[in-house]
């Protein structure tokens, strides 16, 4: 059932876009039929399908990392970015885009394109993650770790603000565009990279399902149930970093999905069992991103709206509605 919705959302996503391509032709292109407009063929295969796949991967991946964080921290407000991963990525991108003009030493980095931004932002997020990990080895209290992650997020966000203040309008604009997030413009090669990262994250998460269920009772109970708390904590944090960092690198900082989709899935399935939740958040995350991306590139419109805004504008009311309607938070 869910798979079907995902399939429909996928088809809808690739058949709609700024260039109107009839539905029948989309089908023909997909299944190797011949059509008159070769440019349509190009649009579908080189633009829309990679974009749709990126949407599924990033939506599912972010939702999964959000689930991991919420379970590990036993906190419904945790998301993939609580460890400062997103701000780290922003800092990386900001230094590359805006810092190049400020420090002459950085002019070698002057070539700002999609790939170098991806590299810079993933470096930024992993740097912050490394610092947080170093702190995590000293701090035993998971709640304190959560707050420390948020503090690192604030610091990096502040650094980005300072950079922005000293930057010329042109570069600032470029950075703001990056921060809007986008699932488009990925080549098949980049897509392969992204899917390997997400796949690895999914595999590790599946292997951790049993300990994730133990974490539902809290860290102490998990330990008394035989979970190697230290090891599994590292595993879960690294997996989150891998997923959120990797996705942010390619698609920009996409907010909301990671926080909201786990809540949506828990409400809909009325369960906290990770055997159900892990596949559920992957599929829901994928669907949500596909739908949001379809709205962002509203059919026939020339403009592509920032996906980061769409996810929140259309997703937040759904979550609010669910919570108000059920009058009870499932967590």
């Amino acid at each position: 059932m869910l798979g079907l919705i995902l399939g429909v959302a996928f088809l809808a996503n690739i058949s709609l876009g700024s260039v109107m391509i009839p539905f029948s032709d989309t089908f023909r292109i997909l299944f190797g039929g011949h059509i008159e407009h070769t440019s349509w063929d190009y649009i579908i295969w080189e633009y829309r399908i990679p974009k749709a796949l990126t949407a599924i991967l990033s939506g599912g991946g972010l939702a999964l990392s959000g689930l991991l964080m919420q379970t590990l921290f036993r906190n419904p407000l945790a998301g993939p970015f609580v460890l400062g991963i997103s701000s780290g990525a922003s800092l990386g991108a900001a230094i590359l885009i805006m810092g190049a003009g400020l420090f002459t030493g950085f002019t070698a980095f002057g070539i700002v394109n999609d790939l170098s931004i991806a590299m810079a932002s993933s470096m930024g997020s992993f740097l912050v993650l490394l610092v947080v990990m170093a702190v995590a080895s000293k701090i035993k209290d998971t709640m304190a770790l959560l707050i420390i992650g948020l503090m690192f997020g604030s610091i990096t966000a502040a650094l980005v603000s300072v950079l922005s203040y000293f930057t010329e309008a042109e570069k600032l604009r470029q950075f703001v565009y990056w921060s809007f997030g986008s699932v488009g413009n990925l080549t098949w090669y980049q897509l392969t990279l992204l899917s390997s990262i997400v796949l690895l994250g999914i595999l590790i998460s599946i292997s951790a399902i049993k300990s994730l269920n133990a974490y539902l009772l809290g860290e102490r109970y998990a330990k008394s149930l035989g979970v190697n708390v230290k090891k599994s904590r590292y595993t879960i944090i690294i997996t989150t970093g891998l997923l959120a960092g990797g996705i942010t690198a390619f698609a920009g900082p996409i907010a909301f999905v990671g926080l909201a989709v786990p809540h949506l899935s828990r409400q809909i399935f009325d369960t906290t069992d990770h055997k159900i939740l892990v596949p559920a958040v992957l599929i829901y995350g994928g669907i949500l991103m596909l739908v949001c991306d379809t709205i962002a590139q509203w059919p026939g419109s020339e403009h592509i709206l920032p996906i980061n805004a769409i996810t929140s504008i259309f997703g937040a009311p759904v979550v609010i509605w669910l919570l108000v309607n059920k009058r009870k938070m499932v967590f």
Partner: peptide, 28 residues
């Protein structure tokens, strides 16, 4: 423990079943 149960959406059966974790396989 005394700490309040956070995961109170578990059913009684699910909660008790978690006690079997030391004996189940990797998938639980």
């Amino acid at each position: 423990l005394t700490e309040p149960l956070i995961a109170n959406n578990l059913t009684v059966f699910e909660l008790i079943a978690l006690g079997r974790q030391p004996y189940t396989n990797w998938w639980g």
